[in-house]
Amino acid sequence: MKTGFIFAGVLAALAACGPLHTVSPIEGLVRGAVSGALGDDSASGTPAAAAPLTRAAIEAADRDLLRISLIEREATALLSLAATNGTKATWFTSDGLSFTFDRGVLVGTRGLGADVLGSDVDGAVAAMRRGGNYARTLDFLDGLDQIERRVYQCVSVRTGEETITIFERSYRTAVVEETCTGETEAFKNTYWRDSAGTIWQSRQWISPTAGFLGYQRL
């Protein structure tokens, strides 16, 4: 619950860069919290990935971290949890992109240009355990500022088990493949999910232009 406010504080701190602003006690508090979460990186503004990311650094952070790659753009970033809303968690990069996952499945992006504005993932989440067929919608924003709703027919299949290692820590996961076909395109998402239901690693389609993302929970 606190994280959302911290993020708001980060924005306030950024705004106060000009000489016209004084630093309020609340901002100071927020800055301290952020520095604590991410070590010196956030204070100095240098990318965390410039220093090798280690399990120790991950453990030292007091916030949940997520690593996302935008595959088409050959870019990767470390994100921190900014807010949770029900089962949805929104993660931010430091340069103003956000990604929202509902129980590990992508429901929203902001700042990519070709963003997902919303999605219903109840079918996908339900099918993770035993597989199944369901319809899924993805909302996009078109060039005329209208929401374009696309419907996909999806099939989820559990294709096997795999032990994955993320920064020295191993997870026993089931591999679930979700294949969705729409009117103009088809895509296949892959999830690595442990027995408790946490998706530790996945590869998911965003939009026709933005392509796929890959993520790892750290």
Binding site: A82, A83, N85, G86, T90, D95, S98, R110, G111
Partner: peptide
């Protein structure tokens, strides 16, 4: 446009 602040419960 940069990402908006998320909704907070």
């Amino acid at each position: 446009d940069s990402a908006p602040l998320p909704v907070l419960e």
